[in-house]
Design a protein around this nucleic acid. Structure first.
Lengths: 222, 222
DNA sequence: ATTTTATAAAAAATCGATTATCTTATCTAA
DNA sequence: TTAGATAAGATAATCGATTTTTTATAAAAT
């Protein structure tokens, strides 16, 4: 479930980390906003110490900016950064996908089909689309999982979170998902056929389309 | 006029973060070791809260493993991980170098020459080689600085730290630096000549040679 | 009118103590 | 002996209060 930076949950701080991360990625805080720690304490119903530990981790992860003696801020968004992230995603996920197609075994094939199926069947209206988002993330994670590089997967995940800060700006628009969702299934097909080159090309296009969505949202937002 | 423009005073936790990071990268803790927080408190002369904040950040950064209710451990080393890191370094630093050579301006050229010169002139025996290490890091950082991607630079830095956990195992061996140091200057030359392809090829070789050093040390260590 | 200085309020960071959890040592029963 | 239970000690995590620093406000000065 939460195989993120942190171990399985059981401290007060780890669930807060997850909740804050979700909310930061989901755009529940305004970019550039300074976090009011006391308000967060109230909102998430936790003490100061575990909250600060979570904030420190999120700052190291890049979802917050920490300034000495003046707390934590939500990083600003910029066109330049969005371009940077999208470009890197294309490079890194392309690399990972090619490797995954080489190394992935039968279990991977099954996982992939399952993840794609679950994503298609997801109730988009449920839970404000959170469920769809979770499955979408899971699909992309599954796709590159057997690439053989722990660090590459780590960076990709980090970039996904950053990218989603742009992609998920504004209201939910299920209509856009149509075209992107088709690509998910094409990706599965190419992966199962072990066509690394074609899969990578499609992944390029997929990220590029997502980028256009994110860019439009970013521009509409400002 | 500008009397109020002062750099924020640092917190107790930020210097500890730096010190701990140096010590972790420099191999001052055994891989796999569990950190005794009380001992650290003594050693670094700080309170528990700032220490824990630093540890949390280092865990998110990947220089520590955090396990709920059982504190912080130094990550184990493995041949597989070293290969992974070296491979990724070749991909990412190569990519960054090519881009830096395209975008770097005259200031960059000067910085690069200066960094290379300082590195060559560094007193290797001084401060247990810490000064050389600092300048070495700075040289590689300068080399790729104008690549245009903040996130790429961030990942490269992170990989450098991880790589150095292997490269800096065991006693200092200034002799090995000879060959690598020559490559630094060749890199500068190719960069100034704007020969991206050749520079990237040399960078591949440079990282590969470093990898062999690191691997030898890792194997000698076990 | 703008800048400087002084003061009050707010917020961030840290401390000291407490609570919860893990680890180790010891004991008992099979 | 060994497995399991349990109690004691050690360590991790958290709380509540304190200290430090910043930010906001208002008066004084150029």
């Amino acid at each position: 479930m939460n195989k993120h930076i942190q171990p399985p949950a059981d401290t007060a701080s780890s669930p807060i980390y997850d909740a804050l991360r979700r909310d930061l990625v989901g755009g529940r805080f305004a970019a550039g906003e300074k976090l009011a720690i006391n308000a967060l304490k109230e909102h998430y119903q936790v003490g100061l110490s575990p909250l600060r530990e979570a904030l420190n981790k999120l700052a190291a992860y890049g979802l917050l900016i920490q300034e000495n003696q003046r707390g934590f801020k939500v990083p600003k968004l910029s066109r330049e950064e969005l371009d940077d992230i999208a470009h890197l995603r294309i490079e890194l996920e392309g690399m990972a996908l090619e490797r995954a197609i080489i190394h992935g075994d039968a279990v991977w094939e099954a996982d992939l089909l399952a993840a794609a199926h679950r994503l298609r069947r997801a109730d988009v209206s449920l839970d404000k689309g959170e469920e769809w988002e979770r499955l979408h993330t899971q699909f992309h994670r599954t796709l590159v999982a057997p690439c053989g590089s722990v660090w590459l997967l780590r960076f990709i995940e980090q970039l996904h979170d950053q990218f989603d800060r742009y992609r998920r700006l504004g209201p939910k628009m299920p209509s856009i998902r149509q075209e992107l969702d088709e690509q998910h299934h094409e990706l599965v097909e190419l992966a199962l056929n072990r066509d690394g080159k074609a899969a990578r090309a499609l992944m390029d296009d997929h990220i590029h389309k997502s980028y256009e969505v994110a860019l439009a949202r970013y521009q509409a937002h400002a």
